Deep mutational scan, measured.
Amino acid sequence: MTEYKLVVVGAGGVGKSALTIQLIQNHFVDEYDPTIEDSYRKQVVIDGETCLLDILDTAGQEEYSAMRDQYMRTGEGFLCVFAINNTKSFEDIHHYREQIKRVKDSEDVPMVLVGNKCDLPSRTVDTKQAQDLARSYGIPFIETSAKTRQGVDDAFYTLVREIRKHKEKMSKDGKKKKKKSKTKCVIM
């Protein structure tokens, strides 16, 4: 069974824990209790493949930012979460993405942009803004509501699919490099 290491990042209060708990335990946590770091595991079937999701729910508070490099190193894919009623959390996505790329030393890291709290009427981040940002990053965008469960499975499952595509691409690139290195030079 394939294991996928997913990391949920975003500013404090955007609903990272609520999304994760909704996926794992099928219930909505409405009281806000700032996370330092929590880890969850769940076995699911995605596109006919049974897999184990190892999900790291991270601290959004700035005082825990020193811990970010460590979990970013171990993560295979990242859910970059903002709240649709919090423009600052949307603007912060850029910083999370840049930090992930720096730590992973790669421009090509599996990510999904997630606009959470889409059940709320007080939207300050337009869907088109988020779609445009995701398009500019070359990553999928999904709106979710941890409260109603809308888009929750889709967000995590899409990230797994992005990781699969990335692994497939990397193995193809690896095979191309191996083929090239088999060419021999004969000096007579």
Rank of each mutant, 00 (worst) to 15 (best):
M72D: 09
R73K: 09
G75C: 10
G77E: 00
V109N: 02
R73E: 14
L120S: 08
K88R: 08
S122Y: 08
V112R: 00
G75I: 05
S106R: 10
G115E: 04
T124C: 10
G75K: 03
F78E: 01
D108A: 08
N116A: 15
Y71P: 15
D126P: 05
G115H: 05
C80N: 02
V125R: 11
E107I: 11
V112N: 00
A83E: 15
V81Q: 05
V81S: 04
L79Q: 00
T124M: 11
V125Y: 10
R97W: 15
N116I: 06
E107R: 07
K101S: 06
V125M: 12
D105E: 10
N86Y: 02
E98S: 05
V103M: 12
Q70F: 04
P121G: 13
I84K: 14
E98Q: 10
Q99R: 07
V112K: 00
R102P: 02
T74K: 12
L120Y: 15
E98V: 01
E63R: 06
C118Q: 06
Q70A: 11
V81T: 10
L79D: 00
M72N: 06
Q99H: 09
V112T: 02
S106T: 13
M67Y: 06
S65M: 09
P110R: 01
E76G: 05
Y71S: 15
F90G: 06
S106W: 14
R68Y: 02
R123A: 14
P121R: 09
L79G: 00
M67Q: 06
E63I: 02
D69R: 06
L79V: 10
R102D: 03
V103G: 08
F78M: 03
F78H: 01
A66T: 11
P110L: 02
K117A: 15
C118A: 10
G77V: 10
R123D: 14
D119C: 05
C118T: 09
R68L: 04
K117D: 10
S65T: 09
E107V: 11
E76F: 07
D119M: 05
T124A: 12
L79F: 04
Y71H: 10
K117I: 15
T124G: 13
E107C: 15
D126F: 07
M72G: 08
M111P: 00
V81C: 09
I100R: 01
V114Q: 01
F78R: 01
Y71C: 15
Y64E: 04
D119W: 02
Q70H: 09
L120K: 08
M72F: 09
D69N: 12
M111H: 01
R73W: 07
V109Q: 01
G75W: 06
E63H: 06
E98G: 03
E76S: 09
E98T: 03
D119R: 03
L120C: 09
G77K: 00
K101G: 06
Y71F: 08
K117W: 15
C118I: 12
V114A: 03
C80T: 03
D105K: 14
V112I: 12
D108I: 05
V114L: 09
F82K: 00
L113Y: 10
V125W: 09
T124N: 12
E107F: 09
N86C: 05
M72S: 08
K104W: 13
T74L: 07
R123M: 12
Y96G: 02
D119K: 03
V103R: 05
D69E: 11
K101F: 06
M72V: 04
M67D: 06
D105V: 04
D92A: 14
S106G: 14
D105M: 10
V112L: 05
E76Q: 11
A66F: 13
E63P: 04
L79E: 00
A83L: 02
G75N: 08
M111C: 05
Y64S: 04
F82I: 08
S122N: 12
I100H: 02
N116Q: 14
K101T: 11
R73Y: 10
F78Y: 09
Q99S: 06
E107H: 08
Q70Y: 05
Y71W: 12
L79C: 04
P110H: 02
N116E: 05
D105R: 08
R73C: 09
V114H: 00
M111Q: 00
V114F: 02
K117M: 15
E76M: 13
E98Y: 02
C118G: 11
Q70W: 03
G77M: 06
I84S: 15
F82Y: 11
V114M: 06
L113I: 13
I84M: 15
A83V: 02
F78P: 00
D108Y: 07
V109C: 06
K101E: 11
V125Q: 13
V109F: 11
S106Y: 10
G75M: 05
S65K: 10
D126V: 07
S122L: 08
R73M: 10
E98A: 05
G77I: 07
F82G: 15
F78L: 04
L113Q: 01
Y71E: 15
V81E: 05
D108M: 06
R73V: 08
K101R: 11
R102A: 13
G115V: 12
V125K: 11
G77C: 11
N116V: 15
V125P: 11
G77T: 02
I84T: 15
P110Y: 01
F78D: 00
C80A: 04
I84N: 15
R73T: 11
S122F: 08
